[in-house]
């Protein structure tokens, strides 16, 4: 029974389109629990600098802490002309997160990021390092298959949360082509999310959509609202004591135009579609995840910013 439950561990891919990660979650003792991946999505356009990401675990009562490293690579056009040079922008994040179940159906998640971003413009190198925006979310499981012996398992969750402006927002960066080169949005943002997972035998599908409402920050700049969606296929398998969950999927993000003092800022809206793949490995209380995202289609910041790829690596410990 327990083994079945274990194999039923559902990877959950936090999809905030920006970064998706799948994790297996397992019932405890001695099952593993894998932390739901929380998306830390550095919104490419109107970078809210780590907009809320959704993640959730499919099983109830999962506790964990973890650390994750994310690397995002972009290039942006440094200049107003067609032949202005394209420069590389690197966004590196180290995150701490934890997930705490409150009741049988409710859980709370917190996410604390620290960023090291850099880029080299014609005028010189630019680095910004520091704490990013902290996210706090609550999830409620509307329904979920409880029976261990079911062949097909479903789970559907709704979530809501808030992202605090703990990361520094520097308005000086808004003059440049990529206004998302920031540590934070400077604003309180709110998210609504939903996630559905279904699994039969070892194969599962996870689908998620969420919407982020962004507000105006102290400098009267407001990043555009963001819509994220993702779908991931995963397969749970095991070799001896090692759980292995490879994943494959799609993730998309759509950004509304940013506003400056309530006025639309032209060419800040955008959208992007990623293909992603990854794998998670679990051993006893630890799990290790690796994932990468490659753009399939994109039109960010009026074509003046391009995402190259994203990858991430995480290590979790279930409590």
């Amino acid at each position: 029974m327990k083994k079945i439950i274990l194999t039923l561990a559902i990877s959950i891919l936090a999809l905030n389109a920006a970064q998706a990660r799948t994790e297996k979650d397992s019932i405890d003792n001695p099952f593993r629990r894998y932390v739901a991946l929380l998306e830390e999505d550095c919104d490419a356009c109107g970078c809210s600098a780590n907009g809320g990401s959704m993640g959730f675990s499919s099983m109830l009562n999962s506790n964990f802490v973890g650390i994750r490293y994310i690397h995002q690579s972009y290039k942006s056009r440094d200049g107003v002309f067609n032949n202005s040079p394209w420069i590389d922008e690197n966004f590196n994040t180290a995150q701490l997160w934890a997930r705490v179940p409150i009741t049988e159906r409710i859980e709370v998640m917190a996410l604390v990021p620290y960023h090291f971003n850099n880029r080299e413009k014609a005028t010189g190198k630019e680095n910004i390092d520091g704490l990013g925006d902290i996210t706090l979310m609550g999830f409620y499981t509307l329904f979920g298959t409880k029976s261990d012996s079911a062949t097909v398992f479903h789970k559907f969750q709704l979530g809501a949360g808030v992202k605090a402006p703990t990361g520094k927002y520097d308005s000086a960066n808004n003059g440049s082509i990529n206004p998302s080169f920031q540590l934070g949005t400077g604003s309180w943002d709110y998210t609504l999310a939903s996630e559905y997972t279904v699994k039969k035998n070892n194969l599962g599908l996870n689908a998620t959509v969420n919407y982020v409402f962004k507000t105006e920050n102290e400098k009267n700049y407001q990043f555009g609202n963001q819509f994220n969606y993702a779908a991931t296929l995963f397969y749970s398998t095991k070799i001896d004591n090692l759980d292995i969950v490879p994943q494959l999927g799609l993730a998309g993000e759509k950004y509304d135009e940013n506003k400056d003092h309530g006025e639309d800022v032209p060419l800040t809206a955008g959208d992007i579609l990623f293909g992603k793949m990854g794998v998670e490995l679990g051993l006893q209380k630890f799990s290790l995840g690796l994932s990468t995202m490659l753009p399939i289609n994109q039109n960010l910041t009026g074509g003046r910013v391009e995402a190259n790829y994203r990858w991430s690596l995480n290590l979790n410990y279930s409590l």
Binding site: S171, A172, K219
Partner: peptide, 8 residues
């Protein structure tokens, strides 16, 4: 091309 407010 664009206007940049506030920062100088």
């Amino acid at each position: 091309d664009h206007v940049h407010n506030g920062a100088g």
